[in-house]
Every structure is written in C-alpha cells, then in structure tokens.
C-alpha cells in the first residue's frame, strides 16, 4: 500500500522536476554549462562564510554600488545574525557614509542627514531613466534578489562575472555597445566588464583575483536574496528530525491499531 502511494507521488514529483530542469544557456547554438565553484552555503547543512560575505560586501560597495541599487537591504541587516555579522558600530559607520533626505525644515527646504542603521542602502540614481542614461541605455537591475531572480541562481551570477574577455565565436554578431558573454541570454550584455584583477584591495589581505571577487560578491548577493537561509536550514533539521520520528511513531500506532481488523 505504502509503495503504491510513494510510487505515485514520486512519479508526480519527478515529472515536476523534469518540467523545471529545462533551462540551458546557449551561445549561438552552443550550450555552456554553468561554472559551479562550490559555495559554503550549499547543501542542507551549508552556512554562509562570514569573511566571504564581508569581502563580497566590500566588492559591492566599491564596484557595483555605483550603478546597482540593493533597495531591499537596510544597513542594520549587515549586523544581524546569519549575514556578514559586522558589529553594530561598523554597520553604523557604513551607513553614515551616505546621506538621505528626511523631512523639511522650517523654511520648507529638504533636510539632508547621514544614514543610520534603520535606513536602506542608497540608490545610485534618482530615477530609472537616469540609470539607463548612464548605462548604455540599459537599466542596471537591483541586486537584492538577483540570485533568486535568474535561472541558474548564484552559479549563473558567478559564471556571468567570469564570462568577460572571451573570444567571440565566428558565427555570432555582437553590437558595438555590448560586451560578449556566453552566459548572458542573447550573448550581448550592456554591462562592461565590472571586475579586473585587484579592482578591490581586500581588507583581510586576500588576493583579489577575478574568480575570488566573483565568488565573494556572489556569496554576498546570495545572502542578500536569502538572509534567512541559515535559520531556515537549522529549523529544517529540527523539523525533519521530529517528523521522521513522528512518522515512525504514527506508522507503529497505525499498524498496531489495525492488527486486529479482518
């Protein structure tokens, strides 16, 4: 009996996954597999690497934030559990480097003050149109959720950042304003290569190769999209352990109860 139900469920689930696993990356007919470097937060017991998240935040702050907003993040998130876990004081310092308009004074002029922990990350542009105008006509997407908002997830982001500087295959035409990138859908991406060796000087002394910075900023972006991940997996472990025991108890209870029927 149990087999029957499991088989049916499995067929249905398998079909679901079958349906979902249909994303491929093509570059003019060729399909590139994603580069999967392996991250500390993968798997059912994976956790974020605090140092990596901090390096990643440094990359975002020094390179990406000039064009990309992260409006779902507030500075207080930098010091909360499960993330880069800066001290509150460090997070306050990061916040104070930016200003925000907060209310109007008695003359009706806007009051500009330094950002505090409860304020969000600043927007590099005042409008979407301004963003497009400064970026090749393309809008640099908000990065708060980017690893959840792209098929291939964080491995896609990592691969994309590695995809620059490759030789353009003979059968592909890329317009002059775009850069060739085998992982970007359509292969021509409006963003110029963002990372070069040692674009950033890491505070902890790690050598800033392109792979290193890509991995670090990808981890930071993954955290930004899923700040609850560590708590989620922790709770998951407790819940699944409980459920497995409970299922066994229920199984024995059920069979014991039904033993005398028939």
């Amino acid at each position: 009996m149990l087999n029957f139900i499991k088989i049916k469920s499995l067929i249905l689930i398998a079909s679901v996954f079958f349906v979902l696993s249909n994303e491929a990356y093509s570059a003019g007919g060729e399909t590139y597999d994603l580069i999967k470097p392996g991250f500390s937060f993968e798997g059912p017991t994976g956790t974020y690497d605090r140092e990596q998240l901090r390096r990643g935040y440094q990359v975002y702050r020094e390179v990406c934030s000039s064009c990309h907003s992260m409006k779902q993040l507030a500075f207080r998130n930098l010091s909360q559990k499960g993330g880069p876990e800066y001290t509150e004081d460090d997070a306050k310092v990061f916040a104070s480097e930016y200003t925000i308009i907060d209310g109007f004074d008695d003359y009706g002029d806007p009051i500009e003050r330094a950002r505090i922990l409860s304020d969000r990350f600043p927007n590099p542009y005042d409008s979407k149109e301004a963003a497009k105008a400064s970026n090749n006509g393309a809008y640099p997407p908000d990065l708060s959720l980017i690893t959840k908002a792209r098929s291939g997830g964080y491995n896609y982001i990592y691969s994309l950042l590695q995809g620059y500087g490759k030789e353009i295959p003979a059968n592909i035409e890329i317009s002059d304003t775009l850069s060739y990138n085998p992982w970007f859908p359509g292969n021509g991406i409006a963003m110029y290569q963002p990372l070069y060796e040692e674009s950033v000087e890491y505070e902890d002394g790690t050598f800033a190769s392109i792979e290193q910075m890509s991995a670090d900023v990808t981890a930071f972006l993954a955290w930004s999209a899923e700040p609850e991940m560590e708590e989620r997996k922790r709770l998951g472990f407790i819940v699944m352990s409980f459920l497995i025991i409970f299922v066994l108890l229920m199984f024995f209870t059920t069979t014991r109860l039904w033993k005398d029927v028939h």
Binding site: F242, I245, F246, L249, M250, F252, T253, R256
Partner: peptide, 8 residues
C-alpha cells in the same frame, strides 16, 4: 506507544 505518539 499511543501516549508517546500523542505527546509528539
């Protein structure tokens, strides 16, 4: 068994 299951 029943009591344990119930408690769970």
């Amino acid at each position: 068994l029943y009591i344990t299951t119930g408690a769970f």
